[in-house]
């Protein structure tokens, strides 16, 4: 309160109180708390993991390390696949999300059909669908079998890109629609063309507003790659499955499987965590007063 007349005692109870930081917050700011929680989770996870190794007996440690080694090979392949899915998915999402906000009925209709179709298919069905159609179409062609197989398998990857594209289209559309109409009014009133105003006024704001939701969708599409083993991909998910079902020959079946899946989960966590941190970093990089998304 600056310079206002003193309030009578009965009213001063209603006046805004000085915000008082709680003792907990003063001594343990959230930044430190989050580290403590992460650290604790890591320690507990590690202890559980070691306990499981204990069940496996120490001489089975070589099994756990060997499994990790194979899983990391699959992890690289997963990264490769993700590096294809994210750009295609984002490109599709951007174009179709934009198409759904235009005045052109044909574009809007096409966008709606696309989103309705790909959003209502389970990703596993889409992978089969794309791969099988490609396989059937290529059956009679005379390209060599190895190339045929490669094309078929990559079509499964494209299926996932189309799937996440549908979700990202909705995110982009929501972002575009959440830019107030006053912004385009102002651009129109200055004689700025529709296309220029889209690229220089609407999209830069829509992009900032959609980043958190996009990060969410990125992490979910990264994990969807674990379905690709159904058409023969030896990516992280595929290798985990194979190792887990083979583990009976090396160790007790249940414990062996558990070790494999814990290691796989850790690797998925690493890539997803990095991706979400990157998106958060981009958010901070393009932060503008008045356009922050509440955290």
């Amino acid at each position: 309160m600056t310079g206002g007349p003193a309030l009578p005692p009965t009213l001063s109870a209603l006046a805004p109180q000085q915000p008082r930081r709680s003792v907990v917050k003063r001594f343990f700011p959230w930044r430190i708390w989050s580290r403590i929680i992460y650290g604790a989770a890591g320690v507990i996870g590690g202890i559980l993991f070691l306990l499981e190794l204990g069940y496996l007996k120490v001489y089975r440690l070589s099994f756990a390390l060997g499994a990790l080694h194979s899983l990391i090979q699959g992890f690289y392949l997963s990264l490769e696949v993700v590096a294809v899915i994210l750009p295609i998915g984002f490109g599709l999402g951007f174009l179709i999300g934009w198409a759904r906000t235009t005045r052109f009925v044909i574009l809007r209709g096409f966008g709606s059909v696309y989103v309705d179709f790909f959003r209502s298919m389970p990703p596993i069905a889409l992978i089969f669908f794309f791969a099988l159609i490609t396989g059937v179409e290529l059956r009679t062609s005379n390209i060599n079998p190895y190339t045929k197989e490669q094309i078929t398998m990559w079509m499964g990857v494209v299926a996932l890109a189309f799937h996440t594209g549908a979700y990202q289209a909705e995110i982009v559309r929501a972002g575009i629609l959440s830019v107030p109409s006053g912004q385009t009014d102002a651009a129109d009133a200055l004689g700025i063309s529709r296309l220029t105003s889209m690229f220089l006024v609407v999209l830069p704001q829509a992009f900032r507003l959609s980043l958190p939701a996009l990060g969410n969708e990125f992490s979910s599409s990264i994990k969807d790659t674990s379905l690709l083993n159904v058409i023969g991909w030896a990516e992280l998910g595929g290798i985990s499955l194979a190792l887990a079902s083979n583990s009976i020959t090396y160790a007790h079946y249940l414990q062996g499987s558990l070790v494999v899946w814990i290691e796989a989960a850790f690797l998925y966590f690493v890539v997803t965590y990095i991706a979400t941190r990157l998106v958060r970093g981009i958010e901070d990089l393009y932060k503008v007063p008045g356009l922050e998304v509440a955290r």
């Binding site: 006053g182 912004q183 102002a186 009133a189 006024v201 704001q205």
Partner: peptide, 15 residues
């Protein structure tokens, strides 16, 4: 381009 306009809600480009 020939006629300027000023709005009630200012409508400055936020970004």
């Amino acid at each position: 381009q020939q006629i300027g306009m000023v709005f009630q809600q200012f409508n400055l480009f936020t970004h």
